[in-house]
Design a protein around this nucleic acid. Structure first.
Length: 496
RNA sequence: GGGACCGUGGGUUAGUCUGGUAUACUUCGGGCCUUGGGUGCCCGUGACCGCGGUUCAAAUCCGCGCGGUCCCA
């Protein structure tokens, strides 16, 4: 390594995304100022720029939730053990990773308290109280909070941390159709947040029977493909049938005055979405963000000589003001102690989508030079219509990111019809391998044992509506693993 | 669930094998210089992950923790 390159690498990213994705990811998260490691293993400290990304997701989703009948609430972070035990499958599903509080002050507690791994078991009893008649339904509650799952496996900032931020929605409905409509509405909103806010295309489908949320009838998912070929579960929406309503006695008087049991759903999206965001678009220069979520959308870098300083700064500041007034998030980087090259590199590391370069040439010609972060495409626009021009460039940057991710997804769904073919394809290319499936968990196990890949989703024929929807039928009717009769399609992938 | 590697100022790093004053770059603070891709100079602050052991003496050797990364399941 030459002295020059060694020097130039110290401030920026030194790992390669394609060769060492794990270390590269950790370096981007830290050097782009998104998060630090906390003193306890598996926990992170989210820094202002990282938190701003989460807020961008929150703003979008929370707005859509509000438009579709959801009310926000907040429940305690502790759940008494006796509550947690009321739904057997929840207990069994989360038992190994529940953190417990056993002491308050200096005294042992009479009943230990679980730190919520999810809140069904404390929200449901209250919904049972609050729901009396069909007029109270549907009831849609959501909370933005953190949950704790004490996983022993290795952790990775945002992708897998013991405590993570998320939202969890919990709803009750008078009938099955209402619950299904709810499940699909939320899944659709998750899909939308990925595609329209994070510039990440997703696949939507349902999880196989054996991989459902504990106690659920059906678990639906949106899955995103990461550049290293692995799939991330981006958000889930569960139809809980009547099992939770029965366990917690959520019942209501129907129009016919008969007491009936409600149908419930729950749905959640966590800051794992940030992990997917960082992973998907960023590169060896650092973070890359779509303008929709970027805390700073536009960095203005003035370039001056002693005799041009005043006019360059004046011209730049006027543009910054105009853009800010138009609603853009702008940073005028007029630091005197840094040269432009340094600033370029720094804003690239931090993922600022669009850079405006303004020097004496631009001032003289009444222009602005614009550079796109993702591919460094450079353009020149007139000073006059700068607001519209910037708006247009930001849209184009978003499209570039989305299109690149969409192309990668399209190219990485492959078909296979035999076990060795499935594993060979996954091993060589990663991505998704589509195969007919008999529905037997043993067939997934056979693949899982050999290469840590699993069925991540089963595609759905229809968008849902008020029914469970139909899973896609396979073209051939032989299970790709065991050869038995197959009526379903499964997508295998390595996962995070 | 198994295996490997790693931990030295805020970041990167030399020193560890072979025990004896801890190296440099960068960031940061102050000053000078000045700007189209990480500019140069001067001054300053700042570190051996923790605990225990071996030893006259431990960043270095040993043990146990804690933390991080990777590979395989």
């Amino acid at each position: 390594m030459s002295e020059e390159s060694q020097e130039s690498q110290e401030l920026g990213i030194t790992e390669s995304k394609s060769h060492r994705p794990g270390e590269w990811y950790a370096e981007v998260v830290r050097k782009a100022g998104l998060a630090d490691y906390a003193p306890m293993g598996g926990f992170i400290v989210t820094k202002p720029r990282g938190y701003a990304l989460w807020e961008a997701i929150q703003d979008a989703l929370d707005g859509w939730f509000a438009e579709t009948g959801v009310d926000n609430v907040y429940f305690p972070m502790f759940i008494p053990e006796s509550f947690l035990e009321r739904e057997k499958e929840i207990v069994e599903g989360f038992d190994p990773e529940v953190a417990w509080v056993t002491q308050g002050g200096h005294d042992e507690l009479e009943e230990r308290l679980a730190v919520r791994p999810t809140s069904e078991s404390i929200i449901a009893p209250f919904m049972a109280d609050w729901v009396r008649s069909h007029r109270d339904l549907p009831m849609r509650l959501n909370q933005w909070c953190s949950v704790v799952r004490w996983e022993a496996t290795e952790t990775k900032p945002f992708f897998r941390t013991k405590e993570f931020l998320w939202q969890e929605g919990h709803t009750a409905h008078a009938d099955d159709a209402g619950a299904w409509a709810e499940v699909w509405t939320r899944l659709g909103q998750y899909e939308r947040v990925y595609e329209d806010v994070l510039a990440i295309p997703v696949l939507r489908g349902k999880k196989p029977e054996h991989d459902k949320f504990p106690g659920a009838d059906t678990t639906t998912t949106v899955e995103a493909l990461m550049p290293d070929g692995r799939s991330v579960q981006g958000g889930t929406s569960h139809h809980l049938g009547q099992s939770f309503a029965e366990a917690f006695d959520i019942s209501f008087a129907g129009e016919d005055e008969e007491e009936q049991t409600a149908y419930t759903t729950s749905w959640g999206l966590s800051w794992r979405a940030l992990g997917a965001l960082i992973m998907t678009h960023s590169d060896d220069q650092g973070l890359v963000l779509p303008p929709t979520v970027a805390p700073t959308q536009i960095a203005i870098v003035p370039i001056w000589q002693e005799d041009t300083q005043e006019e360059v700064l004046e011209y730049s500041a006027a543009i910054a003001d105009e853009l800010e007034e138009a609603g853009f998030r702008v940073e005028l980087d007029d630091r005197d102690e840094r040269n432009p090259g340094f600033k370029f590199n720094e804003h690239e590391l931090n993922g600022v989508p669009l850079r405006l370069e303004i020097g004496p040439y631009e001032v003289e010609d009444e222009e602005v030079t614009l550079v796109h972060r993702p591919d460094k495409e450079e353009g020149v626009e007139g000073r006059e219509g700068i607001v519209d021009a910037v708006d247009d460039h930001l849209d184009r940057i978003y499209d570039k990111l989305y299109d690149a991710a969409a192309e990668r997804l399209d190219d990485n769904v492959r078909e296979a019809h035999a076990p060795e073919d499935i594993m060979g394809t996954l091993g060589r290319h990663g991505g998704y391998v589509k195969t007919p499936w008999c529905g037997d968990e043993a067939c997934e196990e056979a693949i899982k044992e050999k290469m840590a890949a699993e069925i991540v989703l089963q595609p759905l024929e229809a968008e849902g509506g008020e029914t469970a929807g139909e899973v896609e039928k396979p073209e051939s009717e032989e299970c790709g693993v065991c050869g038995d009769h197959a009526e379903e399609v499964a997508y295998f992938a390595r996962t995070y």
